[in-house]
């Protein structure tokens, strides 16, 4: 049996890495490193979940860890890297509203915001320090993911941002409460993402690579609005 305080220490270290990976997703221009950052983030989530299992011993946490590992560390990144190879766009240089540096600053603001918000809301709840921090990290991860969805223009990066939002929600749920439905939710969201990705793939499969790149360049939401 490993000492719980030691495990908690490890979890706290992992928190820091989770935040760093979120920062990388916000700021990196290279698509494959965004993907790597996301994969690492999901892996960290799985690790946190299994460490919690070692402390608590609830089977659900282990199941969550296994599912996360299977879907978010292996399946989805594999899918996305295939798409990235197909579209032959290595870099995502376009940012809609915010350049990386201001958005990093903004994300620090978001972390502080979620800290103050949660410390106000959770005043009456008997949460331990570790769990409170987990909730803060989860909420700020969600908000940072939202920032990615808003500030990036390419659909692939938006999808990754959405996925990291989902990681944040899972993290939040993991630490605040034991929600019986959290695993079903995970599956549903992965399903959605797979549907999106296959849609993107389907467009590409029908035409040659050159056409597809043309299409993909125009496949930027937020700008395709006014035509018809």
């Amino acid at each position: 049996m490993i000492d719980p305080t030691f495990l908690e220490g490890i979890i706290k270290i992992l928190f820091v890495f989770v935040l760093i990976s979120a920062g990388l997703i916000i700021s990196t221009r290279n698509l494959s490193s965004v993907l790597t950052a996301y994969t690492i983030q999901s892996f960290l989530l799985a690790a946190v979940s299994s460490l919690l299992y070692m402390i608590d011993g609830k089977n659900q946490l282990l199941l969550l860890a296994v599912l996360t590992l299977a879907s978010k560390v292996i399946l989805i990144p594999y899918f996305i890297s295939r798409i990235e190879q197909k579209i032959k766009i290595g870099r995502d240089l376009h940012f809609a509203y915010l350049e990386p540096t201001p958005s990093l600053l903004l994300s620090i603001g978001l972390i502080i915001l979620s800290y103050t918000f949660l410390s106000g809301v959770f005043k009456g709840l008997p949460l331990s320090k570790l769990f409170f921090f987990g909730a803060v990290i989860g909420l700020s991860l969600t908000l940072m993911g939202m920032l990615v969805v808003f500030s990036r223009k390419r659909v692939i990066t938006k999808a990754l941002g959405y996925l990291s939002m989902e990681n944040g929600v899972l993290m939040f749920g993991l630490f605040v409460t034991e929600l019986p439905f959290i695993i079903e939710v995970l599956i549903i969201i992965d399903l959605i993402i797979l549907v999106i990705l296959t849609t993107i793939m389907a467009v590409g499969m029908d035409s040659s690579i050159e056409e597809y790149r043309q299409k993909f360049r125009k496949l930027q939401i937020w700008t395709g609005g006014e035509s018809q």
């Binding site: 938006k158 959405y162 939002m165 549907v195 999106i196 849609t199 467009v203 299409k215 496949l219 018809q228």
Partner: peptide, 19 residues
């Protein structure tokens, strides 16, 4: 193309908010 645009926009906004 525009349809897929609209569909993706739809999924991202609604699912993001549903999170």
């Amino acid at each position: 193309r525009e349809n897929i645009d609209a569909a993706l926009k739809y999924v991202f906004i609604v699912s993001g908010a549903m999170l």
